[in-house]
Each structure stands twice: as structure tokens, then as C-alpha cells.
Simulated scan of single mutants.
Amino acid sequence: MPRRGRVKKEGPESGEDSDEYRKRRDRNNLAVKRSRVKSKQKTQETVNRVNELRNENTVLEEKVKTLTKELGFLKELFLAHASNNVDASKYEGINLQKLLADDSSASTSNDKNPGTT
């Protein structure tokens, strides 16, 4: 099977000192330099994006904590109101225990399906 690849020229212009060879090397060196700069830039952009997402995640986690505390407070407030209210007929047909149950089972199912709200 014939060998494929670059055929070496023979003659006075075939050496590494030829203008054509030097031009190819220079072009290749520039291409490599551009490629490395582009690669470093892309890596830096990725690092920046990761940092942005970490910061956003921290903010969102704090918001979840705050909203969870607020939900607990509102549940307690509702229970106090419902237990003091003489007219319990308002709450007929409503499963208060299920409504006020800890939402850990609901958040677990949402974690499995993050696209659902």
C-alpha cells in the first residue's frame, strides 16, 4: 500500500531554510498561538460562568430558606386562627392535615422533576 503524506521535495529549495517552509511554519505558529488564546479565553469564560452560577445558587438557597421559614410561620398562624374560629364549617371539605403537612414529600417529587412547578 503506498504511503500517504507529505512528499519531501528534493533540490536546493527543499531544506528547512526555504522561504516556503518558513512561511508555512510561521503560519502554523500563528494558528497555534490563536488557538491557545481562544482556548484560554473559553476556559476563562467557563470559570466566570461557573462563579456566576454559584453566586446565583447561593442567593436562591437563601431565598428558599427564607420562604420555608415564612411558610412555617403562615401555617402556624393559620392553625391558630382555625382552632380559635368558632365557625369551623368554613373549612368543611378541606383536608387541613394534608394541606398543612410538611411539604418535604412534595419537594422530593419536585426534585425528581425539576421542570415542574
Rank of each mutant, 00 (worst) to 15 (best):
R25M: 03
R25Q: 04
R25H: 04
D26C: 11
R27D: 00
R27F: 01
R27T: 00
R27H: 03
N28R: 14
N28F: 12
N28V: 08
N28Y: 14
N29L: 14
L30P: 01
A31Q: 09
A31P: 01
V32R: 05
V32D: 11
V32K: 04
K33A: 00
K33D: 00
R34P: 00
R34K: 12
S35F: 07
S35E: 11
R36P: 00
R36L: 09
V37C: 02
V37S: 08
K38G: 09
K38Q: 14
K38N: 13
K40W: 03
K40R: 14
K40E: 01
K40M: 01
Q41Y: 07
Q41P: 14
Q41M: 05
K42L: 11
T43K: 06
T43D: 13
T43P: 01
Q44C: 06
Q44R: 07
E45H: 09
T46K: 12
T46Y: 10
T46S: 11
N48L: 10
R49D: 15
R49H: 13
R49N: 14
V50S: 02
N51I: 09
E52P: 01
E52Y: 01
L53T: 03
L53H: 08
L53P: 13
L53V: 03
R54S: 00
R54G: 00
N55D: 12
N55K: 03
E56I: 01
E56H: 04
E56N: 09
E56P: 07
E56S: 03
E56Y: 06
N57W: 08
N57K: 12
N57L: 07
N57A: 03
T58S: 05
T58W: 09
T58H: 10
V59D: 06
L60V: 03
E61T: 15
E62Q: 07
E62K: 03
E62M: 08
E62F: 10
V64Q: 04
V64K: 02
K65M: 08
T66V: 13
L67K: 05
T68Y: 06
T68V: 07
E70P: 02
E70C: 02
L71D: 12
L71N: 15
L71K: 15
G72Y: 13
G72W: 13
G72D: 13
G72S: 14
F73M: 13
F73R: 15
L74I: 13
L74C: 09
K75H: 11
K75I: 05
E76K: 00
E76F: 07
L77D: 15
L77F: 15
F78A: 06
F78K: 00
F78Q: 02
L79K: 01
L79F: 10
L79C: 09
L79Y: 11
A80Y: 12
H81M: 09
A82L: 04
A82E: 14
A82I: 10
A82F: 02
S83E: 15
S83H: 07
N84S: 15
N84P: 08
N85W: 02
N85E: 14
V86P: 14
V86Q: 13
D87F: 02
D87Q: 09
D87G: 01
K90N: 13
K90A: 13
K90G: 05
K90F: 13
Y91N: 11
Y91R: 04
E92D: 15
E92W: 14
G93W: 07
G93P: 06
I94F: 06
I94D: 01
N95I: 13
N95C: 12
L96Q: 03
Q97Y: 10
Q97F: 09
Q97I: 08
